[in-house]
Simulated scan of single mutants.
Amino acid sequence: MDEVLAWIGTLPFALAIRRSATLYIFVNAAHILSFGIIIGAILPLDLRLLGLARAVPVAVVGPYLSHAAAVGVALTIATGFCLFSVNPLEYASNPAFLTKMTLLAVGVVNAGLLHLTPQWRAAIKGGPLTLRVRLSAVLSLMIWTGAVVAGRWIGFLLE
């Protein structure tokens, strides 16, 4: 595994980011903005699924915010991999990084499983917000909040 991690550190974009403080700053900023897209889409969607802003139809905001969050996840993974590549051996042993990666995976699985259910399909067609949908929203709020906290914690645990 160490060989794979070391190889990641030799990729051309890893070397470019490591050699340029400016490039690192821009990739880091893009990563933070990407995570902002996720939170900016997921938080209002989850709160709506939990019953807030009832005047806003889930059928209108659900698909839009779900797609926005998916774009945010894709951008976060891409920019995060670039940042990871700068020092993969150190990040791979960082408990906060590992926690963030676990939460990211669980958050994506939670959203994916929800979107596969008939309850979600009914909700985005104007149907009822079932217990399954609401529980997924509560779980989502906890997961993504935890991922933000873990992400901020990474820098404090780097050796």
Rank of each mutant, 00 (worst) to 15 (best):
M1S: 15
L5M: 10
A6C: 09
W7L: 08
P12Y: 07
A14L: 00
A16C: 06
I17W: 07
A21V: 12
H31T: 00
I32C: 03
S34E: 10
I37C: 03
I37Y: 03
I42F: 04
L43W: 01
L45F: 04
D46S: 13
A53D: 03
R54P: 05
R54M: 01
A55E: 03
A55V: 02
V56Y: 02
P57V: 07
A59T: 09
V61K: 10
P63D: 04
Y64G: 00
L65R: 02
L65C: 02
H67K: 09
V71R: 14
I77P: 01
A78F: 11
G80C: 09
G80M: 11
G80R: 14
C82S: 07
N87Y: 10
N87P: 04
P88W: 01
P88V: 00
P88D: 08
L89N: 13
E90C: 09
A92F: 08
L98T: 08
K100I: 02
G107M: 12
N110F: 14
L116K: 03
T117H: 05
A122P: 07
A122Y: 01
A123Y: 05
K125Q: 12
T130M: 09
R134Y: 14
S136H: 15
I143F: 08
T145D: 00
V149L: 15
A150F: 11
A150M: 09
I154T: 10
I154L: 09
G155E: 01
L158E: 11
